[in-house]
């Protein structure tokens, strides 16, 4: 093992937890908007440039700095979540085969965790269990479910993701997915409706807003069409309250993301993984299979 010339000792992490409320922005009253993601799934939608990646990066930053957290990132564009690659346990680019692999691994973990919970006579994971919350962030879900791969692979991706969204809640595997317009031809309604939390960034039509937030909200006055195109990061969020709240999502610049990602990577693993065990993920997968 090579000893690296580190001038500063490795710091203790900030001690955040995925069971803590995650700061996502402020509301119209200037109050902080916090969501607890450990037992929830979040779907973000809206037109390009609306601020979806800002929300994903804010959540990824919290997850990266959390002690009990693992990150699984699926990013068809590579750049939205690419800066978190060093903190993530899996970072999947535009490769549906790799995406299917990682989803199958997650499914296996989920099954094992449920078996573990059953063995202990419990119904859901808690912060006291010491198990990590595996946050699955999917940017551009449409890329995997409707663009790349064969029809069969796309269907398998949707089926695996639906299973994660449906069953992952109590096993500590929350899914945060973003796409521009989650209509039925992009992701099945059966998958879309499973997401409990919704964030609608600017939409061009009330119907698009309804698709993200849920049917009927536009008629009640909650439509993301009234967000100005120049107001990036403004969104309607349905979370704990059950009623859409107008929020402004916190924004991290590239430099800030790089800083947090470096810090998180430093606290998580002072030396890069490949220098210790090359291709650790594949080894794990081989053993599990």
């Amino acid at each position: 093992m090579t000893t690296t010339a580190e001038t500063a000792p490795v710091p203790v992490g900030p001690g955040l937890s995925m069971f803590d409320p995650i700061f996502v922005g402020i509301d119209e009253f200037g109050q902080h908007v916090n969501i607890t993601l450990a037992y929830r799934n979040l779907l973000a939608g809206g037109e390009p440039g609306g601020g979806k990646s800002g929300l994903l990066n804010t959540i990824a930053a919290h997850a990266a700095l959390s002690v009990d957290s693992r990150l699984v990132l699926l990013d068809g564009k590579l750049v939205e979540l690419g800066q978190w690659e060093d903190c993530a346990d899996a970072f999947i680019g535009p490769d549906i085969t790799a995406a299917l692999d990682v989803l199958k691994r997650l499914q296996l973990v989920m099954n094992n965790r449920y078996a573990w919970l059953r063995a202990h006579g419990r119904r859901k994971l808690t912060a006291a269990d010491g198990l990590s919350v595996i946050t699955v962030l999917v940017d551009e879900i449409a890329f995997y479910s409707a663009t790349v791969g064969t029809k069969q692979e796309q269907e398998e991706f949707v089926a695996l993701l639906r299973d994660l969204v449906a069953r992952g809640r109590a096993a500590g595997i929350p899914v945060v997915a973003a796409t521009q317009r989650p209509s039925f031809d992009i992701i099945p309604t059966s998958l879309r409706d499973l997401f409990g939390y919704r964030a609608a960034f600017r939409c061009t039509t009330p119907n698009s807003s309804n698709i993200v937030l849920g049917h009927g909200w536009a008629e009640q006055g909650y439509t993301a069409t009234d967000i100005q195109p120049t107001n990036q990061g403004a969104a309607y969020l349905i979370a704990e309250g059950g009623v859409p709240r107008r929020i402004k999502v916190a924004y991290l610049t590239d430099a800030q993301i790089a800083g947090i990602a470096d810090y998180a990577a430093w606290t998580r693993r002072p030396r890069r993984l490949p220098t210790l065990v090359p291709d650790l993920t594949r080894v794990d997968f081989g053993m599990a299979a």
Binding site: N231, A250, Y251, L252, D262, R272
Partner: peptide, 25 residues
């Protein structure tokens, strides 16, 4: 419309500014 200003994240303040840059291949 009040939500026009940019909102920062408090996570920026919890990190150490002197973090060594990760050596990426």
């Amino acid at each position: 419309e009040v939500l026009t200003a940019q909102v920062g994240s408090p996570l920026v303040d919890v990190i150490d500014p002197g973090t060594p840059v990760t050596d990426r291949p």
